[in-house]
Design a binder for these strands. Structure first.
Lengths: 190, 190
DNA sequence: GTCTATATGTAGATAGAC
DNA sequence: GTCTATCTACATATAGAC
């Protein structure tokens, strides 16, 4: 009844999201997306003008997804410190994929920073979303320099993910998560 | 006198090294390397069988380069803690490129982890080189769990680089380096 | 809205003259 | 050793029938 189109569009975006993550943006072709979705290559241009437009839609979808994750962190815990704990638990929750493919957001920005700075700016919106939320939590903890703490936490998680992937070492994630959560517990009003 | 060939080979490797860093492996074509070096595309196959072989040569060259950097850290300082300080100073020394293109080794491994795990294993040799050296330094410091400390330091540096690149923020590198060096100073035998 | 056929460009790789 | 011309495959994107 005319909503088949929207279903197809969503299917393309979800599939592209996964493939951009697990193969990379440049290494994902329309053929790849067509093979997974069963939608012919030519149809893509009914929904999107260019491949870049698909990336824009993927970033929008990720903003939605990670926005919901942040909401879940808020609803599961009322105390900011516990919310940060839940946030950092993402390292454990996505352990297997992180080791194999790295962080979906970090690796996308890293890839696009090299030859598509315009798209990198688009992709980093997901990091901005998370950083802003983290600033709220550190501010609620009455930490000094909440902005710095927020970026520090993201940097710690990115570094852990990069090295875990380099050395195919999921145990490193688990060990580092313990240390990271100790660090979170040390964050006080000063 | 027959050594022109070796010069050309070295020129190809050095140019590929730079381009693989600043554009990425997959996004660097033979045409790109030919344009920079002035060597015709067809000639590449006199020196290398495949593009993958060029990557292997680039990794060998990087092992040489970073081996020399580690030697310099050793020769500049006799105390292990000071050697670690010099090592971490790489963040400041390469600040501009790190913000624009990320870490040459980290981003290469991250890219290849997605669709060329075989080449990722090759590329991570540079990390193994650095980690082994760091283990020596932390062991000389009589730290417990020197292996863990070595990987922790690499992870911290990777995370700092990723976020600095994401937010185009070289000031974040400088601030984080101060905190990282405080951490190095806290590493004691206990 | 859906699909096939195709245009246009470029990738890695090869052949063979010089 | 060096260079040009070319092969095959596949990329994004378009045209137009149904």
């Amino acid at each position: 009844m005319g909503n088949k189109g929207e279903n197809n569009r969503q299917l393309i975006v979800e599939t592209a999201d996964q493939l951009f993550y697990k193969r990379g943006y440049h290494q994902t072709s329309f053929r790849d997306i067509a093979d997974v979705t069963g939608i012919p290559r030519g149809n893509f241009y009914y929904y999107f003008k260019t491949k870049d437009d698909i990336l824009n839609a993927v970033v929008e979808a990720r903003l939605q997804t990670y926005g919901e994750i942040l909401q879940a962190c808020e609803q599961t815990a009322s105390e900011p410190r516990q919310r940060l704990m839940h946030f950092s638990n993402m390292l454990a929750n996505f352990e297997e994929d992180l080791v194999q493919f790295g962080c979906p957001i970090g690796t996308l920005c890293a890839e696009l920073a090299k030859d598509r700075k315009d798209l990198k700016q688009v992709s980093r919106a997901v990091f901005v979303l998370m950083r802003d939320w983290l600033v709220e939590q550190f501010t609620a903890l009455k930490c000094v320099k909440a902005e710095d703490k927020a970026t520090d936490l993201l940097a710690r998680m990115q570094g852990i993910t990069v090295m875990a992937s380099v050395f195919d070492d999921s145990a490193f994630i688990r060990r580092s998560l313990v240390e990271l959560q100790e660090w979170i517990n040390e964050q006080t009003p000063a």
